[in-house]
């Protein structure tokens, strides 16, 4: 992802005429300044990333090797080491903790595949249907973007309200108005909770895919389509031969970003179900939250997080390698 967007380094160029420069920086020691400039400009970003992401993550990794329960949290730096015990506990899939982690992992995988897949599909469909000029296009585009613009918790709270068994819209429509079911189903507990969560996540994710893909499709020159149409290509063929290939670079990025967001999604289950989600909807992030913040067992929680991070890195690396190979073979 990074390398596809970073261009070749510009040649050393454009030495500013120090005499004319109003704010001539390279006055005293021009060589050093020039070399240092990139680092100076990057410094705030580097420092903040170190402060908020890198150092805390390293501390988190250290914590995963400690026996960090409520007995030691007060003086956590002197908590006894646990070696690989926390990891052993987390990957012992015959034991109760490892088994539930594995269950939670599979739930998350299913959730991610569905949410990314459906969101991408809806986004792509929306983007294709929104091509061309027609009345109300601007308004529709605005309406489609609303779910993405709404703060996460307000959207999810509303879905929670809609999915209530007795007072929710969903059962009102399904049972009272359409009479599709005789019994009011539950949506926030049991097996249905998974689907309730998928719908909620898709609702607030697809507009992002829509936004990016629409931007991509706008870049496709109209005469390409015209040429194809002259060759007798129908709508499907135009989509298959022009739209999809030309949107491919955006697709690669959008799918990766959606994957990372969805896999790490914490807000949806947390706002929908509270601190302990039904086991059918027990996403990995909420599972880890429960294992560290509710029971104050941060060693095990950190070990689980590190495993999650390793998994995400592996998937991303494989994905990027795959994309790069494909780009090469396409080129």
């Amino acid at each position: 992802m990074a390398s596809t967007t970073i261009p070749e380094a510009p040649a050393e160029n454009g030495t500013p005429g120090p005499g004319r420069a109003r704010r001539a920086r390279p006055r005293g020691r021009p060589k050093l300044s020039r070399a240092a400039l990139p680092y100076i400009l990057l410094a705030p970003a580097i420092l903040l990333e170190l402060l908020v992401h890198i150092i805390p993550m390293i501390v988190g990794i250290v914590m995963s090797f400690l026996k960090l329960t409520q007995f030691h949290i007060r003086h956590w730096t002197s908590a006894p080491g646990a070696g690989f015990d926390n990891y052993r506990l987390a990957v012992d899939f015959d034991g109760p903790i490892g088994r539930q982690l594995l269950d939670s992992f599979w739930v998350t995988v299913m959730f991610t595949v569905l949410v990314v897949g459906i969101s991408w599909f809806l986004g792509m469909a929306g983007a294709i249907l929104m091509q061309g000029a027609f009345r109300g296009r601007g308004i529709l585009r605005a309406l489609f973007l609303v779910p993405y613009a709404l703060p996460v918790y307000t959207g999810v709270i509303t879905f929670g309200f809609m999915f209530q068994r007795d007072t929710g819209l969903v059962n009102h429509v399904l049972v009272d108005q359409l009479h599709l079911m005789s019994d009011r189903p539950f949506w926030l507990i049991g097996g249905n909770s998974f689907w309730a969560m998928v719908v909620t996540a898709v609702w607030r994710t697809w507009p992002f895919a829509f936004l990016c893909l629409m931007a991509a499709l706008q870049n496709i020159p109209r005469d390409v389509y015209e040429a194809a149409a002259l060759d007798g290509a129908g709508v499907w063929q135009q989509i298959r031969r022009i739209t999809l290939p030309m949107a491919a670079p955006v697709n690669r990025v959008v799918v990766l970003v959606l994957f990372l967001w969805t896999f790490n999604d914490f807000n949806t289950p947390y706002v929908l179900f509270g601190k302990s989600a039904p086991e059918e909807a027990d996403l990995i992030s909420i599972h880890i939250y429960q294992n560290s913040f509710v029971t104050w067992n941060f060693g095990t929680g950190s070990a689980m997080s590190v495993l999650l991070l390793l998994f995400l890195m592996a998937v991303t690396a494989v994905y990027l390698a795959f994309v790069r190979r494909k780009e090469k073979s396409d080129a």
């Binding site: 992802m1 990074a2 390398s3 970073i6 990057l42 970003a45 580097i46 990333e49 402060l51 908020v52 992401h53 890198i54 150092i55 805390p56 993550m57 501390v59 988190g60 914590m63 956590w76 970003v257 990372l260 790490n264 914490f266 992030s285 880890i288 939250y289 560290s292 941060f298 929680g301 950190s302 997080s305 590190v306 999650l308 991070l309 995400l312 890195m313 991303t316």
Partner: peptide, 25 residues
Amino acid sequence: RVFSVTVLSTQMFPGILFLLPLFLL
């Protein structure tokens, strides 16, 4: 390159992992 890759990869850090450490920091 190191900078670009590192900065981007922070996007995949699970928030849960560094919430407590960040707080302590």
